[in-house]
C-alpha cells in the first residue's frame, strides 16, 4: 500500500499538479470538472479511469484531444463502471501471477458517470460491480438530469423540476416523482463505503475519497453537480448553488460504512430554507406561482423528514 497523500489544508492541497486538463468543452462554470479535480487530486497514485457517455465524457475526449493525463477509457453509456471493473480484475490476475512490471504502484480504479448513466441506464452494471466486490470507486456527477442530450428527466430528477420530457406548463408543474435514493440502494449491497459529497465542501470530499481509497472493496460516491445550463443559473454562481444545496439539506452530506453504519459528516450552522435553494434556479421558477406554492412547503417537509431520518439512523448505530 502506498502512503495516503497528506492534505492538511487548502494551501497544501494547491501544490497538487492536476491530471485533468483545460480546453475541454464543458460549459463555463460546470461543476463536473470541479468534482473531478477534487477526486483526482486526493491521491498521487496512478489512475485507471473511465467515463460513461455524458457531458464529462463527450467534452473531454473530442478527437484529436484528450483532457486526461491518465489511462482513461470510454465504451458506452451504461458500462463505464464495468470497464473499470474489468481493468481491476485483470490487474489482480496479473498481480496474482506475479506478472506486474511495477507491482508497488498501487493504482486507483475510478469510474465517473452522470445520474442518467448511474441511476437509470448503467444501474445493473454498477450493481454488478458493487456485488462482485471489485476494488473500485464509482463517482456519480449528479446534476439530476440528462444534461448532455438537452435536459431529459432521469430518476434523479426531483419533484417540481422542469425538464424537456417533464416540462412545467399550463397543466403540469413538471417532474412528479421523487428522486431515487441511490446512496442507500448502493449501501444495501453491503459495500464498505457509500457517501454523498459536494464540491463546495472540498475537505469533506477529500476525506471521503481518501477513505474510499483505503478500504478494500467497492465504493459508491454521489456528488451533487450544479449544472448552470439545465438548472438555469449564472455560471459564476456554481459554488453558491453548491453551498445552497448542502446548507438547505437538500443534499445532506453523510456516509454509510459497511452498508449500515451511518454518519452525518456536515451539519450547517445556519440551515437555509429550501425555498432559497429553489428560488436560485430557473428549473423551479414556476413553483413560485400561487397555484404551486404548496409544493415548496411539501419540499421543505420532505427535506426535514429525510434529515430527521438520517439523524435517527446515526443515533441508532445500526
Amino acid at each position: 500500500m502506498s502512503e495516503m497523500k497528506k492534505i492538511k489544508n487548502l494551501k497544501e492541497f494547491s501544490t497538487s499538479a492536476d491530471r485533468f486538463e483545460g480546453a475541454n468543452l464543458l460549459c463555463p462554470g460546470c461543476a463536473h470538472s470541479i468534482i473531478v479535480r477534487e477526486v483526482l487530486n486526493a491521491t498521487n497514485d496512478d489512475l485507471v479511469l473511465s467515463a460513461s457517455t455524458g457531458c464529462l465524457e463527450v467534452c473531454t475526449a473530442v478527437y484529436p484531444y484528450t483532457s486526461w493525463d491518465a489511462s482513461w477509457i470510454h465504451i458506452g453509456f451504461e458500462n463505464g463502471s464495468t470497464a473499470v471493473a474489468g481493468a481491476e480484475a485483470m490487474y489482480n490476475a496479473l498481480r496474482n501471477k506475479g506478472r506486474l512490471k511495477q507491482p508497488d504502484r498501487n493504482p486507483k480504479f475510478i469510474s465517473f458517470a452522470g445520474d442518467g448513466a448511474s441511476y437509470d441506464i448503467g444501474f445493473q452494471w454498477i450493481s454488478g460491480c458493487m456485488e462482485r466486490g471489485h476494488n473500485m470507486m464509482h463517482v456519480v456527477l449528479d446534476n439530476e438530469v440528462y444534461a448532455n442530450t438537452g435536459g431529459q428527466r432521469s430518476s434523479s430528477t426531483p419533484i417540481g423540476s422542469s425538464s424537456t420530457t417533464a416540462p412545467a406548463g399550463r397543466v403540469s408543474y413538471g417532474e412528479k416523482k421523487n428522486k431515487k435514493d441511490m446512496v442507500s440502494i448502493m449501501a444495501s449491497h453491503g459495500i464498505p463505503y457509500s457517501a454523498q459529497v459536494a464540491p463546495n465542501k472540498w475537505k469533506d470530499m477529500v476525506k471521503k475519497i481518501q477513505h474510499g481509497f483505503s478500504v478494500d472493496g467497492p465504493v459508491f460516491i454521489n456528488a451533487v453537480s450544479p449544472c448552470t445550463t439545465e438548472w438555469k443559473f449564472d455560471p459564476k454562481d456554481t459554488m453558491m448553488l453548491s453551498d445552497l444545496s448542502t446548507d438547505s439539506l437538500v443534499f445532506p452530506l453523510y456516509e454509510i460504512i459497511d452498508g449500515h453504519e451511518l454518519n452525518i459528516t456536515y451539519r450547517p450552522k445556519n440551515v437555509v430554507p429550501v425555498e432559497e435553494y429553489l428560488a436560485a434556479q430557473g428549473r423551479f421558477k414556476h413553483l413560485f406561482k400561487d397555484q404551486y406554492k404548496y409544493l415548496i412547503k411539501e419540499w421543505q417537509e420532505r427535506v426535514d423528514a429525510k434529515w430527521a431520518y438520517l439523524n435517527r439512523r446515526e443515533e441508532a448505530r445500526v
Partner: peptide, 20 residues
C-alpha cells in the same frame, strides 16, 4: 491572502498556484 479558494473552485484548471 493566498487562501486558494480560487484555485480549488476554478473548473478549468486556470488558477496558477505555485508553492502555495
Amino acid at each position: 491572502i493566498d487562501c486558494q479558494f480560487c484555485w480549488i473552485y476554478c473548473p478549468d484548471m486556470s488558477i496558477i498556484a505555485r508553492d502555495k
